[in-house]
Design a protein around this nucleic acid. Structure first.
Length: 496
RNA sequence: GCGGGAAUAGCUCAGCGGUAGAGCGCCAGCCUUCCAAGCUGGGGGUCGCGGGUUCGAAUCCCGUUUCCCGCUCCA
């Protein structure tokens, strides 16, 4: 289990402006959430580094931003209209709920009239050996009748066109993937790519989940970061079919991405989908699970979708969706490896994993130990004394200079200890403090030394740095990723 | 959908028939030269919503909405 409960995180998120419940003044809704001033920064940081690491810094990836509303046939071709549903039945007695398609094949409990009502558990869809009856009642309790199957379609219907009766019925996309598949040929033509290559997209998706909940873990409107990586299945790589080898590479890359930005490896594990769990299109799917407060749950999935989607769209559209292999002189329908991550789930995992309660001089300190790339605010400029106009002016000046490169905040509304704790609680990695020595004291005829104190969040160590070197120092810390200990070693410690 | 719990200040909660409270946080001022110090003052809630009972309802009753936990489900 994560060390922190969900309630504590939900409360912190609201109090400090990370996440608000949608439409809260109207009573709210558990299936949608709004990101506040800090939440939107955190969220943008996650998306930015994901895009940077998986799109910009690789030479086999390009990006895409497809529209949310698409031609309705897309969803017929993809299988969502037919398959993105779960007919459910409920037992009237024991209230358990089953998927209608599974209820008939489950082991079932039977009170056999031929044996004076003895209780048997009978395999799968088989009849009773004694009386020959087949299951008619609840497979679990054997007593209750089942309700008629109810259809849940998890896609949001909507109408394209202002007059509802005349408008085309379509759907809010339930995944961003299809926008990539239908643009496969466009991207291929526009970028002259060769296999293997990938197309990435970040965007909103919508699902009418039966049971939304667990804060932002499962909501009806969420954002995905998806990659469709196209591979020639006839190629061999590392002695294996290329799609299988690439699948393993992507699993490893995704896992290390999450741990690189802060998730404790002990809180992350892989889950291999077996048999029934596999989606209808998938050859193999591996989930990356995170240890959320409610248990191990899916952070992202990495699926081998084979050539299913491109073939479906070729069939429904009548367009050829192939890549021409110059070496083998043949048209190939690529296989697709799909790493699909949820922005909101990533954000939640990073938040949970960063959260610490520490004891400092007998007081509790709440600190979010975000990776500095994730931290919403990178630097806080704090004056030690706010009644000295020179200090305040110097602080504002620093703030404006630094914020050209890093999101920086100025705060002078409390004593320094409280200001530090406020920044700790939202994960700001560095604070810069301006004091009397910085600006000097004209009354005593003392000149300022032009130095400020930098305080690091996790160690609470402080160093004294000339203002002229601040941008260089933060460049090393925040852009180059130089460890604090190494940077701090070059400057005198300030008293704490 | 089912079962259970809950809804009172920004947060955590007390109050359970008789003028809405505490702690923390927030704001202003005083003080203060580096880790939630102190003092003074302040803002902020028609007690989820709608009915009912009552002289009087945050409190009792009914309904409703939302949230949480469990079942179920999850590309």
């Amino acid at each position: 289990m994560s060390a922190v409960s969900m309630d504590v995180i939900v409360s912190l998120c609201k109090r400090r402006g990370f996440v608000f419940q949608s439409s809260e003044i109207y009573g709210g809704t558990g299936s949608c959430w709004d990101y506040g001033p800090l939440g939107v920064e955190l969220r943008n940081n996650i998306k930015r580094i994901w895009w940077r690491d998986f799109v910009h810094q690789r030479d086999d990836m390009v990006g895409l931003d497809a529209s949310i509303l698409m031609h309705p046939t897309v969803w017929k071709a993809s299988g969502h209209v037919d398959n993105f549903t779960d007919p459910m039945v409920d037992c009237r007695e024991c209230k358990r709920r089953f998927r209608a398609d599974q209820a008939g094949t489950m082991d079932w409990t039977h009170y056999c009239p031929a044996t004076k009502g003895n209780k048997f558990t009978i395999k799968g869809g088989e009849p009773c050996k004694h009386c020959g009856a087949r299951r008619t009642l609840c497979p679990e309790c054997g007593k209750g009748e089942l309700t008629a199957p109810r259809q849940f379609n998890l896609m949001f219907k909507t109408f394209m066109g202002p007059v509802e009766e005349d408008a085309a019925l379509t759907y809010l996309r339930p995944e961003t993937a299809q926008g990539i598949f239908v643009n496969f040929d466009n991207v291929l033509q526009a970028t002259r790519r060769k296999l293997p290559f990938g197309i990435a997209q970040i965007g909103k998706a919508f699902r009418n989940e039966i049971t939304p909940g667990n804060f932002i873990f499962r909501s009806r409107e969420f954002e995905q970061m998806e990659i469709e990586f196209f591979v020639n299945p006839h190629d061999r790589l590392e002695g294996r079919p290329a799609d299988e080898a690439w699948h393993d590479r992507w699993i490893a890359d995704c896992q290390s991405w999450f741990t690189r930005y802060g998730l404790d490896p002990a809180n992350v594990k892989l889950h291999e989908h077996l048999g029934d769990e596999l989606a209808h299109y998938s050859k193999r799917t591996v989930d990356l699970l995170y240890r959320f407060p409610m248990g191990w749950n899916e952070l992202m999935g990495i699926a081998n979708r084979t050539d299913f989607d491109l073939k479906q769209h070729a069939k429904f559209s009548g367009k050829s969706l192939t890549w021409f292999d110059e070496e083998r002189k043949e048209h190939v329908v690529p296989f697709v490896i799909e790493p699909s991550a949820g922005v909101d789930r990533a954000l939640l995992a990073f938040l949970l994993d960063a959260y610490r309660e520490e004891e400092v001089r007998g007081d509790k300190r709440v600190v979010l130990r975000f990776h500095s790339e994730l931290a919403p605010i990178k630097i806080a400029v704090l004056p030690l004394l706010k009644k000295r106009p020179e200090i305040v002016a110097a602080g504002h000046d620093l703030r404006h200079r630094l914020t050209r490169r890093w999101l920086t905040l100025y705060d002078d509304t409390a004593a320094i200890g409280r200001l530090y704790r406020r920044q700790d609680e939202v994960g700001t990695p560095y604070c810069v403090t301006v004091d009397v020595k910085t600006v000097g004291d004209p009354e005593k005829g003392e000149a300022g030394d032009g130095k400020v104190t930098i305080r690091e969040r996790d160690t609470m160590q402080q160093i004294r740095v000339p203002i002229a070197e601040l941008e260089h120092v933060f460049g090393r810390l925040l852009d180059a990723g130089t460890p604090w200990s190494e940077v701090a070693a070059g400057y005198p410690r300030a008293e704490g």
